[in-house]
């Protein structure tokens, strides 16, 4: 006994750096929402939103119209092939028809994010409703929903969307989001159905039944809160899918024709031979922004994964 107490005393020496780091890790383990990945991911996405908002306040958006300035000007500090230098009137340069790149980005970047968010919001809502119905009602309804979502998963969305979009001609952003939403509800449906099926047999759902709880109460008050981490994760994943699909369509020239989007800017750059003429800012800046967007989404997804699955939270 004396031995243990003397050891306990010697343990009270000021903690070393390694010890302090260990404590910090443990604290993070206890409050999972303080996740650095989550912070960085959110930061990147908010940055893009901020570009859109602040740009509308502080930048002249009329510069997005064709011929508002000299064609193919480089960003400030660079020279193009015609030895023209970048000016502060167009800090990020201009494209092949004299539109200001900064204004294009300010208009375009939030648009891409908007399509992604709207599409996956619709998709998730459908998924939650169908998943809960399938899991809870079971039987024929379950069979129908399951087969339907399984079949839809096997269809490559881009293929169908290309056909749709070319049939529609010019579409609005909302229309495009709706079309994409038709392809992002399947995996949330399956995920939620599986969770509901396993939760239905859990002790607390039985207890709620014993407590005379109604079906909506069991669904939304007992089961739903426990699904929140999954729903978040699935939401972020479908935002990513939706943006990829939207940008894919735009790069093919099938997106909205009159509204600037990042994908459409890339499409025009490729069409005008920007790669050969070394007009890197034309296609490079939108690509960079899309990259930032995806990295942000990926980080959020990884962060949420660690939040909802404690086994991934590493201590060392």
């Amino acid at each position: 006994m004396t031995r243990t107490s003397s050891e306990a005393q010697s343990g009270r020496t000021p903690p070393s750096r390694a010890d302090r780091r260990q404590t910090r890790r443990l604290r993070r383990f206890d409050s999972p929402w303080m996740n650095p990945k989550l912070f960085w991911g959110l930061g990147l996405l908010l940055g893009i939103v901020a570009i859109g908002l602040l740009g509308r306040l502080f930048w002249n958006l009329d510069l997005v119209f064709t011929g508002s300035n000299t064609l193919k000007l480089p960003p400030v500090g660079f020279e193009n092939l015609r030895r023209q230098e970048g000016t502060w009137i167009n800090p990020l340069g201009t494209d092949g028809s004299g539109r200001d790149m900064l204004a294009l980005i300010i208009m375009g970047a939030p648009n891409s994010l908007f399509v992604g968010l709207l599409a996956s919001l619709i998709g998730m809502t459908t998924g939650i409703v169908l998943g809960f119905t399938a899991g809870f009602v079971g039987g024929r309804v379950d069979d129908t929903i399951r087969v339907l979502s399984d079949v839809m998963i096997t269809i490559p969305p881009l293929l169908i969307l290309v056909v749709f979009q070319s049939a529609f001609g010019d579409v609005s952003l909302t229309m495009m989001a709706l079309l994409i939403a038709g392809f992002v509800w399947q995996s949330p449906t399956r995920l939620i159905r599986a969770q509901v099926l396993s939760m239905k047999r859990s002790g607390y759902v039985q207890m709620a039944q014993l407590s005379g709880a109604s079906v909506p109460h069991i669904m939304f008050r007992e089961m739903m809160p426990n699904l929140v981490p999954y729903l978040f994760g699935s939401f972020i994943a479908s935002v990513t899918t939706a943006i990829v699909t939207a940008v894919g369509l735009e790069v093919l020239g099938l997106g909205p024709q009159r509204i600037p989007t990042l994908g459409r800017t890339i499409y025009e750059a490729i069409n005008a031979g920007a790669l050969i003429q070394n007009l890197w800012w034309w296609w490079g800046l939108p690509t960079l922004l899309l990259g930032v967007m995806f990295i942000g989404l990926l980080l959020i997804n990884l962060g949420l994964d660690e939040v909802s699955n404690p086994r991934l939270r590493k201590l060392s």
Binding site: S202, G203, Y204, Q206, M207, A208, E222, P225, N226
Partner: peptide, 8 residues
């Protein structure tokens, strides 16, 4: 262990 909803 299963009888309580972990959320509440």
């Amino acid at each position: 262990y299963g009888c309580f909803n972990p959320f509440y």
